[in-house]
Design a binder for these strands. Sequence first.
DNA 1: CCACAACCTGACCAAGCGGTCAACAATATT
DNA 2: AATATTGTTGACCGCTTGGTCAGGTTGTGG
Lengths: 210, 210
Amino acid sequence: MADGARLTKREETRRENERAILAAAEKVFAEAGFGGATMQLIADLAGLPKANLHYYFATKEDLYRRVVRDIFEIWLHAADVFDLADGPVGGIGAYIDAKMEISRRHPAGSKVWASEVMHGAPVIQDYLETTLRDWTDNRAARIQGWIDAGRMQPVDPRHLLYMLWATTQHYADFGHQIETLNGGRPLTEAEWQAAKASVKTIILRGIGAT
Amino acid sequence: MADGARLTKREETRRENERAILAAAEKVFAEAGFGGATMQLIADLAGLPKANLHYYFATKEDLYRRVVRDIFEIWLHAADVFDLADGPVGGIGAYIDAKMEISRRHPAGSKVWASEVMHGAPVIQDYLETTLRDWTDNRAARIQGWIDAGRMQPVDPRHLLYMLWATTQHYADFGHQIETLNGGRPLTEAEWQAAKASVKTIILRGIGAT
DNA sequence: CCACAACCTGACCAAGCGGTCAACAATATT
DNA sequence: AATATTGTTGACCGCTTGGTCAGGTTGTGG
């Protein structure tokens, strides 16, 4: 008792295998794209026979769909910080921090998401049209509220959101390019902090947030 | 005479076929990624038999390499405007316009480039380490010059460049997402102008450019 | 302990892939 | 007109792919 949920050996194994498969899949899909990824590669990385993957996920597309949706959830919840603050400095500042942190900790997931959208969102188009659209409408309204309250300069809320997404995701999706331009070394802790600070400084000043 | 270069029928055909293949390849690579693209698909789109592709480009990788390098050239030359202006408002403003225009006119190329970098730049790593690094160093120095001259606030020139790249490319790479959030319709001419204006306003104010 | 269900996997398959090639057609050169 | 060069293509090949499946193993509930 006292170690959370009581699990049978079966449930535990299932959970662990799924986790291993999803982690491997995320990495392989990020590195090779959907078309370039192979079930064999994912299986090897997960340490399971290929046939076993098909026991847990019927098809390559099912597995991919699951990976994309998992990322989407994380991505979406980063916006919780948006709603806690009462003004643009706190709200947008915290959102930038949160999204930069996601780029740093889930670079593979970010790439899978980027790849999916870039190729026309074949598997999550419905999510874009429902969940994401609602999400965006809400946040745009909130930003407009700040503008109306004189807390920031009038800018198109949507283009501001695009800029936030673009800039923060860039550090994951184009991490390889940034690393190369950084002398071939990954950003250090201090360099990450500097990156965050730069982004926040420019954007918050850019919208005249108070 | 007077219609430019005099070409034999052979040269003309060769030129036209190469053009058709490259255009088709850019589109297919953008839509499906390197791994998902097939020579058959490219051939069909170019209106040529598959075997003919291999006469012009020995391998799929050769063809891909050519597409990526062509984009890189366009991308790089967009920065010419950077050098004509004497201050950040003109220089960076014009650069944003130029890169937004590329996103608009070469969305497929942009996606191929993004995909290439995202997957670790397997075919243009050398370009990143030489041409792009030099390019970046030069522009960073120029921006630093503007800072030293008091023409803009002190910000890290590199992170500013990343922000410019990220934001402008976003309109190509995530064009599908933007279109979906725009009610399923592509941006109109006026909306493109508004996007450009938003980006320029926020960034130029963000760096305190004068 | 038993019977049943869930889980695992090596061997296999049809389909599609990048790439080759021999035979042929068109153009250029002499 | 004859010849050499370059361009074109259907048919083909070896290989890898996603996916299947029969038969075995492991865990569970009674």
